[in-house]
Write a protein that binds this DNA or RNA. Structure first.
Length: 884
RNA sequence: GGGCGGUUAGCUCAGUCGGUCAGAGUGCCUGCCUCACAUGCAGGAGGUCGCUGGUUCGAAUCCAGCACCGCCCACCA
């Protein structure tokens, strides 16, 4: 164990894969269902099967894994359930592109062969993301991994669909939906992303049928005018009151358009008169319903103009727009054109501008499902971190609209609705042979498939076996924490809560933790097209998974976006390396047969000093902080607290301090403390940096740890090591050391040259503390000896500082001292201290302050004033000794 | 149009209850290969906490307004 030949560089590549296999093979990630310890469950937001691990996944999964590992160590039965999503449109697109390269289309293959082909693709590439997640070190239960199109999950989808259908919560109808002309499918409102875009507003004059004047309407999509079946104005708009009931003529087409009055119209916008196109605009559709208007569909599914467009038939929508504008202009119907910024929907998969289109689609009624989901948030059954996301969730649910769930693609769960030759329509859990109503064998299944999210929203329970009453479901549902990005709060989180209540009558999780978006150092979203993405796999290859995980967690306050540059990951790498070397140092000190003192004997050991007590005190403090922060989902705070403790307290001070105490009477105690602190620190850090902590933990003597792996070692608890006096005394010692070092550096003392130092303190208590530490202070400050005195002897050739207000630290530098410079330095110091003192005095002279501020604050201010007074005094006498 | 978030050191960001909160990492400057670690050690410079008011004994912190950046929602064609 104590080989001195070990490399001074930590090499993660040598150990990560090995440990991962060991953990997995030993079953640490696989909790049993049934009776046992309290479960803790996280279901992984399933990445798309087409997905490649990106920084967003890395962050999301690191957070989840850190939570899972911490709770597992704390004794919970932790289940981290992984899986992938079939991602209907995305996956179909990938395979269609593959086919395109072969010069074929999905229609060439036909539905069955195409779906077969997608399955082949899935079998071949769908597992890649699992390998990448393993490299990240996530402690998922791979034996329970699920895919949204597994037989079990497909059964769950069917079951829910049929239940909703039977409950009257699913309906089919002709409505305006978002249509992607490239994917040739409907999209949900959430899938049609709105983007502000510069466009134009065309003002077109529609003449009246009776030949008397006309009225001007404004439109952003002139091509849709071919489908106009009315013109609308506001009922109270006096400008147009006389026209209501009359008829206008549609230019270019000649169709007669009734002029109707409708509340929807905003008199302030445009001209206050609106062309109504029920087949191509959701509002116009509703107006069409209200006024029983005809619907004229002028577009084909691929966004070319249909037969109904007359002379424009066959043209692409934008080509048609151009021609129509030209033609209107030619005929003098175009009044004017204005620049106009407006929101345009685009397909979230291919970025094509979506077209509002009239078609037959399936919908889920959301209002009844939303009610319990709202209730859960309002009652506190469901919490969000950060809390503000709860309001976003609430607002969406309050305004939720029905969910369009049918997609005109082939890859996905086919809608389980059949129609028989007699026209009977029914939904069925099992593929039917005959119509249940009339026995007809001529059955036809609806050709559409379900929105991918229709399977994702069941994820927390479908993955556990639902609709079967499995042991897993009983044990691990409801789950505990859901960690996800804010982008899918509506797509996924809100709908999961609805499904949870609808199917299980219970909220599917108690906490939703929203993680931030990973951006580049300029704050731009990482994306393929910008080429600014940092590949987490490359970071793992270069620095190790622990470095990636630490950097991500430390840089990511919960819910805040993080801007990262590639160099930032060196922070994690350096920390892992620091740990490696600290452990090397401790190991080297331990004989092969080392038996550490029992932990309960450390703090009360006869040979114990402030140095040991202080680090034990800090260890307890850090343990409490790390635990509280991990429980509150504040992993960045936990990570930073452990980092600070290990690097700056343990390595910078305790290890350095210990070097003179490793042998002799105190040796056994000091070594026991070192190993105890290190061992517990490794456990604290394990959820964040699993690999390096395991590797190092295993290198500690067996008697210093419990169990065969740190993965299943107990989460640390504070032991009541509470030593404020030792903490204070060490703070003074460290301040004195820092002062001597500072004086040496200022005077450019050669590193090899040692100089005697004097520490003057009036208080006997302070002197006593310093006396005890004199040798260590001298050693760590490169001094030949430290003398502790009550009175200051004024010697020539010394330079001084005052620390903690009342302690004077002097170093004899003889020939190196530049009197002039020392006078200046002290004058500066005196001026600074005086101004602080003045401020403090002014504060205390303020009656209001003394009266109204809490006694504790006033007391602290008094102490501060005293310290400053003494400091000014001491500095003054130092200065006086230097003459003019 | 509505809502939310951000603005703190050159850079990336912490800062919970208003009073030891002017902090970290990185970068920069000085000096060190000191027997765990140069992926390191020691020392140092660097900020009017976006702007303007207000509340308060006291404001980076609370309130209002403003400016800039970003996100989400939205059926004004």
């Amino acid at each position: 164990m104590a080989e001195l030949t070990q490399s001074t560089r930590y090499d993660p590549s040598a150990i990560e894969a090995r440990w991962y296999e060991t953990w997995r093979d030993r079953g640490y990630f696989h909790p049993d269902a049934g009776e046992g310890a309290a479960p803790y469950t996280i279901v992984m937001p399933p990445p798309n099967v087409t997905g490649v691990l990106h920084m967003g996944h890395a962050l999301n999964n690191t957070i989840q894994d850190a939570l899972i590992r911490q709770r597992r160590m704390a004794g919970r039965r932790a289940l981290y359930l992984p899986g992938t999503d079939h991602a209907g449109i995305a996956t179909q697109n990938v395979v269609e592109r593959e086919l395109a390269e072969e010069g074929r289309t999905r229609d060439d293959l036909g539905r069955e062969a195409f779906v077969e082909r997608v399955w082949e693709w899935k079998e071949r590439y769908g597992g890649e993301i699992y390998d990448q997640l393993e490299k990240l070190g996530v402690s998922c239960d791979w034996g329970r991994a699920r895919f949204t199109m597994d037989p079990g999950l497909s059964r769950a989808v069917r079951e829910v669909f049929v239940r909703l259908y039977e409950d009257g919560l699913i309906y089919r109808g002709k409505y305006i939906i978002n249509w992607c002309p490239r994917c040739r499918t409907a999209l949900s409102d959430e899938e049609a992303e709105k983007h502000e875009q510069a466009g134009k507003l065309w003002f077109v004059r529609y003449p009246l049928a009776d030949g008397e004047g006309g009225l001007v309407v404004a439109t952003t999509r002139p091509e849709t005018m071919l489908g106009d079946t009315a013109v609308a104005v506001h009922p109270e708009d006096e400008r147009y009151a006389h026209l209501v009931g009359k008829t206008a003529i549609l230019p270019l087409v000649g169709r007669e358009l009734p002029i109707v009055a409708d509340d929807f119209v905003d008199p302030e916008f445009g001209t206050g008169a609106v062309k109504v196109t029920p087949a191509h605009d959701p509002n116009d559709f509703e107006m069409g319903e209200r006024h029983a208007l005809e619907r004229v569909d002028v577009l084909e599914p691929d966004a070319t103009m249909s037969e109904a467009a007359g002379g424009y038939a066959g043209l692409d929508r934008y080509e048609a727009r151009k021609r129509i504008v030209d033609d209107l202009e030619d005929r003098g119907r175009l009044e004017k054109v204005e620049a106009h910024e407006h929101a345009v929907g685009r397909c979230y998969r291919c970025d094509t501008v979506v077209e509002p289109r009239l078609s037959d689609q399936w919908f889920v009624k959301m209002k009844p499902l939303a009610a319990p989901a709202l209730e859960a948030w309002r009652e506190g059954t469901l919490s969000f971190t950060p809390e503000r996301w709860g309001k976003v969730y609430e607002h969406w649910l309050e305004n939720v609209r029905d969910w369009c769930i049918s997609r005109q693609i082939w890859w996905g769960h086919r809608i389980p609705v059949w129609t028989c030759g007699e026209g009977h329509e029914f939904a069925a859990r099992e593929d039917p042979d005959v119509c249940p109503e009339c026995g007809s064998e001529r059955l036809e299944q609806d050709p559409d498939v379900l929105d991918t999210w229709f399977s994702s929203w069941l994820w927390p329970f479908s993955t556990l076996g639902w609709p079967e009453e499995t042991e897993d479901l009983q044990t691990f549902y409801p789950t505990d924490t859901l960690v996800t990005a804010s982008e899918i709060l509506f797509f996924w989180v809100a709908r999961m809560v609805m499904a949870g209540y609808y199917c299980m009558d219970e909220c599917p999780f108690s906490d939703v933790v929203i993680n931030g978006t990973v951006r580049d150092h300029l704050g731009r979203r990482m994306s393929k097209s910008l080429g600014n993405g940092i590949d987490p796999r490359a970071v793992i290859d270069e620095h190790g998974a622990d470095a990636l995980r630490y950097t991500l967690l430390a840089s990511a306050p919960t819910g805040t976006d993080l801007n990262l540059a590639i160099e930032d990951f060196e922070m994690g790498r350096n920390f892992a390396n620091k740990l490696w070397n600290a452990t090397r140092f401790v190991s080297i000190q331990l004989p092969e047969t080392f038996e550490p003192l029992p932990r309960e004997k450390l703090a009360g050991h006869p040979a114990v000093t402030d140095a040991e007590r202080w680090i034990l005190h800090r260890l307890d403090e850090t343990t409490r902080t790390a635990t509280a922060r991990a429980e509150a989902f504040r992993l960045n705070d936990a990570a930073l607290a452990i980092y600070d403790f290990l690097w700056h307290d343990f390595c910078d001070w305790t290890i350095e301090w210990s070097k003179a105490h490793l042998e002799g009477d105190r040796g056994e105690l000091v070594r026991s403390v070192l190993v105890a602190v290190l061992e517990r620190s490794l456990r604290l850090l394990h959820p964040i940096m699993p690999f390096v902590t395991e590797e190092l933990w295993q290198r500690l003597p067996e008697a210093c740890r419990t169990g065969e792996s740190i993965v299943v070692a107990p989460w640390p608890e504070a032991r009541g090591w509470d030593f404020p006096a030792a903490t204070e005394s060490m703070a003074l010692a460290r301040a004195v050391i820092a002062a001597i070092r500072n004086l040496r550096a200022e005077y450019r003392v050669e590193p090899g040259r040692r100089a005697p130092a004097t520490v003057v303190a009036a208080e006997p208590e302070a002197r006593e503390q310093l006396e005890r530490h004199a040798d260590d202070i001298a050693r760590l400050a490169a001094s030949s000896g430290v003398q502790v005195l009550a009175e200051a002897p004024r010697e020539e050739g010394t330079v001084s500082q005052v620390v903690e207000g009342h302690v004077e630290v002097s170093v004899r530098l003889a020939d190196l001292v530049d009197l002039e410079r020392e006078r200046e330095r002290l004058d500066g110091e005196i001026a600074r201290t005086r101004s602080l003192l003045e401020a403090s005095r002014a504060k205390l002279a303020n009656e209001q302050f003394v009266e109204k501020a809490p006694a504790e604050v006033v007391e602290r201010e008094r102490e501060k004033q005293e310290d400053l007074e003494r400091a000014v005094e001491r500095l003054g006498s130092l200065r006086a000794a230097l003459g003019e």
